[in-house]
Computed example of a mutant assay.
Amino acid sequence: MNKKSVAKQQRIENILLSLKKMDYLTRRQIQTIHNLGGDRNANRILNDMNEYLQSFRHGMELVYYLSKTGRERVKCEVIRKKTPNIQHFLLRNQLWIYLKCPSPWKNEVKIKASDTTIICDAVFYQGDTPIFVEVDCSQSMAINKKKIERYCKIRELTEQDFILAWVTELESRRSRLNALCAGLKTRVFTLNEIK
């Protein structure tokens, strides 16, 4: 195998591993993560990978996820399909990209302290401080309030310092989330801010 085909295979592998880690990515997100250059080049690369990928349209963009062949190639056991909750995944993944792809970043992590449990949308660390990520896709503030109360309880039980990072679609929800999180170290990102 010549250098060019080794590089091509490595790029395919890297894109598939990103999809394994993040579940769903838009063409633009893949293009950014893997430095695929312009739109035409990114589309050509992804079209060449069609045996490994499934896609569907979300708004004006194509969203990609692993096909059966793609899952087999990168040993991914999680089967993804087209979902109405796609905006939730894409918003979380856009935050990951905006934060310069922090590693380690884990999705859907269970946090437990005594009898209080919560599954955060993602977690990563700044030094020794965990940053728990929550995605607010226009869900009711009552649901967000209950989640925040559980985070407060976990902090109380563990006496561990953490940061709660929210990502939301609407600027109007920033102040409401900040108010609900009074007493917690919080950062609220909006979609326009992280695009």
Rank of each mutant, 00 (worst) to 15 (best):
Y65F: 15
L95Q: 05
V63G: 06
A113R: 08
K100N: 15
S114I: 06
G59I: 02
W105C: 02
Q87W: 07
K106R: 13
V78K: 13
F89G: 00
A113T: 08
E77S: 12
S103R: 04
R71G: 14
Q87T: 10
L62V: 09
H58R: 08
Y98G: 00
V78F: 03
V63L: 07
S67Y: 04
R71H: 12
I79G: 04
Q94R: 09
T116V: 15
K110A: 09
Q94K: 12
T69H: 05
A113M: 07
Y64K: 11
W96H: 13
K112L: 05
W105F: 15
L91I: 03
L62Y: 15
E108Y: 05
W96Q: 01
P84H: 10
I86N: 04
N107C: 13
N93Q: 07
R92N: 09
R80A: 06
Q94D: 11
K75V: 10
L90M: 08
N107S: 12
V63W: 06
R92S: 00
R80I: 01
G59N: 15
W105G: 01
C76R: 11
N107H: 08
R73S: 14
R71T: 08
V78T: 11
T69W: 02
L90G: 02
E108P: 13
L90Q: 03
L91W: 04
R80D: 02
Y64F: 14
S67A: 06
M60W: 12
V74T: 14
L91A: 04
K81D: 02
K100R: 09
T69A: 10
L99P: 11
Y98W: 08
S114T: 08
K112A: 08
Q94A: 06
Y64Q: 03
E77Y: 03
I86Y: 09
C101H: 07
D115N: 13
Q87P: 01
